[in-house]
């Protein structure tokens, strides 16, 4: 017996309708999970649902425009909040990955509550999936990392939660998204805290710009290589900024620049993963482009770790 997306959709639309008697907002990042949750909730609640997308300043290249387009296509009532300054202020001086995640989780809820009250919503729908609450821990379970939408929530919250995807893994969410006709069904996972957890050390606008450009190069090159048949498209692939400076030489001049790590993994559910065996000429193109096109980076390394012992994201 495999996962039955159609049955799941019918069941969840009914469940959401029962669970949410009034109005709700949905936290929507434009990723597969929250977009799927948004469409399910929208089917259940119609105009009693408002989707809220927050541009945290920690998004990938062109992400906000793309998400806005997706939500328009899906005819989900939505608002886009531009909140980069608030996030950068809250993250100033913070280097601990868990603190970053908690600050971001709290900030999200603050913004959602601000949007919920004029709309009259008492419920917050989230696209939380199984690995989010599993890895967030609690009781017997150890905390691997604070997922912003679970353990990153403030202790006191006015909004009540509704999480229709709690028991699903990414492959099952994708099956649901396909059945709902969602364009972003195959989009690679992107964590809620965004590029903040792909910068080891303090999050600054300059570092975000570096990792954003580097990630765009990783995505373009890997997608092109996969499209040409040179490799299988990994489950997830991105760049990580390392605050490690090393020596380089640029046009007979000494430089002392930062390092970018390239991460690409194969997985089904995100709960275990193997690093992708990317052909060397693809890695070579990525390296040459990043070190030439992204200012401040003179070294690129490739991450060879599986999960476990590592996790997919670096923080």
């Amino acid at each position: 017996m495999m996962f039955d997306a159609k049955a799941f959709i019918a069941e969840q639309v009914g469940t959401i309708r029962k669970a949410v008697p009034g109005k709700a907002i949905i936290a929507c990042s434009g990723g597969v999970d929250s977009t799927t949750a948004a469409v399910l909730a929208s089917r259940a609640l119609g105009d009693r649902l408002l989707a809220v997308y927050v541009d945290t300043g920690l998004m990938r290249k062109d992400e906000t425009a793309d998400v806005s387009k997706t939500l328009n296509e899906l005819a989900v009532q939505h608002r886009i909040l531009l909140a980069a300054d608030e996030f950068f202020d809250a993250l100033r001086g913070i280097t601990d990955p868990e603190r970053k995640r908690i600050i971001i989780g709290n900030k999200f809820i603050e913004l959602f509550e601000r949007e919920a009250s004029p709309f009259g919503a008492e419920y917050l729908v989230q696209g939380t999936i199984a690995p989010d609450w599993i890895e967030s821990g609690g009781q017997l379970r150890d905390r691997i990392k604070t997922h912003h939408n679970v353990a990153g929530l403030p202790e006191r919250m006015k909004l009540r939660l509704c999480e229709p995807l709690r028991d699903l893994y990414k492959d099952e969410v994708r099956a649901t998204a396909r059945a709902l006709g969602i364009r972003v069904a195959e989009r690679q996972p992107f964590p809620g805290p965004g590029l903040a957890v792909r910068i080891v050390g303090e999050v600054t606008p300059e570092r975000v710009a570096i990792v954003r450009e580097a990630s765009a190069i990783v995505e373009t090159e890997i997608q092109a290589a996969a499209a040409s048949g040179a490799m299988v498209l990994p489950w997830q692939y991105f760049a990580v900024f390392l605050p490690v400076q090393t020596v380089g030489v640029h046009g007979d001049l000494r430089v002392y620049g930062h390092t970018v790590a390239v991460r690409a993994v194969h997985s089904v559910d995100g709960m275990s993963a193997t690093y992708s065996k990317i052909p060397h000429d693809v890695l070579d193109r990525i390296s040459v482009r990043i070190t030439n096109e992204v200012k401040g980076v003179n070294r690129v390394v490739y991450d060879l770790s599986n999960k476990p012992p590592a996790t997919i994201e670096w923080e």
């Binding site: 017996m1 495999m2 599993i134 017997l140 691997i144 028991d167 709960m271």
Partner: peptide, 19 residues
Amino acid sequence: IDNGGQWTHREWRVLKYLG
């Protein structure tokens, strides 16, 4: 029986998939 593992829920999923 949940002893707090990271893969407890995976066990549940595999069993469910096996009907």
